[in-house]
């Protein structure tokens, strides 16, 4: 039992990472990583919502009629997302303004449906909760790495603090506009997958 719990939490961080291995959630990984800050907040929001929806679905999994299970999963996720966005509006208005579209996008994030269907529907509550947190964090760290690379080379800043000094620009250094394009995010994700497979030889088929 204990090893199961640990496994549910640890494998999504690297060996069974949702982005690198399951190739889920790529769309939002491209959309929100032009800057580091939205990437971090998006990663955290997905982690929280995934953990809760995994736990809820796992609790009611035995009562869900098989034919309508996807609809039930969708309703649970959409409810959680709406409540989180209402809470943000009431208590952290500035954050909610910044995240306006991204929060809504969480409903369509395929990691959620993927984990609910693949794990929470057939596992107990505690491992499901841990699986949710693990997958959320596995998704978040990729977003943070991609966001950091794109913001550093695309705008010369990290979290809006200037990292590349002004003097570099006077010597003709220029920000890479390509970094701001979603295409570059896909290339960076590709490079991370590459490095990840060099390090973990055992996962190469």
């Amino acid at each position: 039992m204990a090893t199961n719990n640990k496994e549910a939490f640890v494998t999504p961080l690297s060996q069974n990472n949702p982005i690198l291995m399951q190739v889920l959630g790529i769309c939002s990984a491209l959309a929100v990583t032009a800057k580091l800050e939205p990437a971090i907040v998006m990663g955290l929001s997905v982690t929280i919502i995934l953990a809760f929806s995994n736990a809820i679905i796992s609790i009611i999994r035995k009562s869900i009629p098989k034919r309508v299970r996807i609809i039930v999963q969708l309703v649970v996720v959409a409810t959680l997302v709406t409540i989180v966005s209402l809470l943000l509006k009431a208590f952290m208005y500035d954050v909610s303004v910044q995240l306006s579209v991204y929060i809504g996008l969480i409903i369509t994030n395929c990691i959620l449906m993927g984990r609910l269907e693949a794990f929470a529907m057939s596992n107990k509550m505690v491992p499901s909760l841990l699986d949710g947190i693990g997958n959320g964090l596995g998704y978040a760290w990729i977003l943070v790495v991609v966001g950091a690379i794109r913001e550093l080379f695309g705008s010369g800043t990290l979290l809006d603090y200037r990292i590349i000094p002004e003097s570099f620009y006077q010597f003709g250094y220029e920000n890479n506009g390509m970094m701001m394009m979603p295409a570059m995010a896909l290339i960076i994700v590709g490079c991370i997958v590459w490095v990840h497979r060099i390090i973990n030889k055992d996962i190469v088929e």
Binding site: S63, I64, P65, R67, V68, I71, V72, V75, T79
Partner: peptide
């Protein structure tokens, strides 16, 4: 859980609970 009546009742209950939660928050 494969019974038609059960399926319909289940969905009705889920929707009512969710609607109440959302309206309340």
């Amino acid at each position: 859980t494969e019974n038609n009546l059960y399926t319909i009742l289940y969905i009705v209950v889920v929707v009512i609970v969710v609607a109440f939660l959302l309206a309340f928050s």
